[in-house]
Amino acid sequence: MLSTETRLRLEEIINRLSVGGLVSLEERIQLNKYSMRVPFIAGKVSQAIRKRESI
């Protein structure tokens, strides 16, 4: 289970990823870590990548 603070931080990173914004290596590692454990986050990351590719 994610805390509200963690979920909001990850969603902010995912939003930047979806619009082609800067995402640091540390943030990408953090996203990868949570994506492996939390299907909701994995789905959001996949959507963000698809959205970025369509831009």
Rank of each mutant, 00 (worst) to 15 (best):
K33T: 14
S3L: 11
A48S: 08
R7G: 01
V38A: 04
L8K: 14
I14P: 00
I13M: 05
I13Y: 01
S54C: 01
V19N: 04
L17H: 03
F40N: 12
E5I: 10
S18D: 07
S24G: 07
A42L: 05
E11G: 08
L17G: 02
S24C: 00
V19H: 10
Q30L: 15
L10K: 08
N32C: 06
K51Q: 15
L22G: 03
P39M: 10
E26I: 02
E11C: 01
I29K: 15
T6R: 10
R16G: 06
R7H: 08
L8T: 10
I13K: 05
L2K: 04
E27I: 01
I14T: 06
I49K: 07
F40L: 14
V23E: 09
R7Q: 14
L8Y: 01
T6N: 08
M1L: 11
G20L: 03
R28I: 02
Y34S: 04
T6I: 15
G21Q: 11
L10A: 10
S46Y: 05
E12H: 09
L2P: 07
S18Y: 02
S3K: 12
Q30S: 12
L8E: 15
P39V: 13
I49T: 12
Q47C: 00
I13H: 03
R52P: 01
I13G: 07
I41Y: 03
V38N: 11
K44M: 13
S54F: 03
I41Q: 08
I41P: 02
E53N: 12
Q30P: 00
M36V: 11
V19K: 13
I55S: 11
I29W: 05
G43R: 15
L17F: 04
G20Q: 09
L2R: 09
Q47F: 02
L10Q: 02
S3R: 13
R28A: 09
K33E: 14
E12L: 06
S18R: 07
L31V: 08
L25G: 05
K44N: 02
V19R: 09
S18W: 00
I49Y: 00
L31H: 05
K51S: 12
S46T: 13
R28P: 00
S46M: 09
A48Y: 02
E12M: 02
E11R: 14
L25A: 10
L31K: 08
I29N: 12
G21F: 00
M36I: 10
V38M: 07
L2I: 10
E27Y: 05
S35G: 07
F40Y: 13
L22N: 10
M1A: 13
L22Y: 10
L2S: 07
L17R: 10
V23Q: 10
I49R: 03
R28F: 08
S35Y: 09
Y34R: 04
E53P: 00
L31T: 05
V23I: 04
I29T: 11
G21R: 01
S24I: 04
R37M: 14
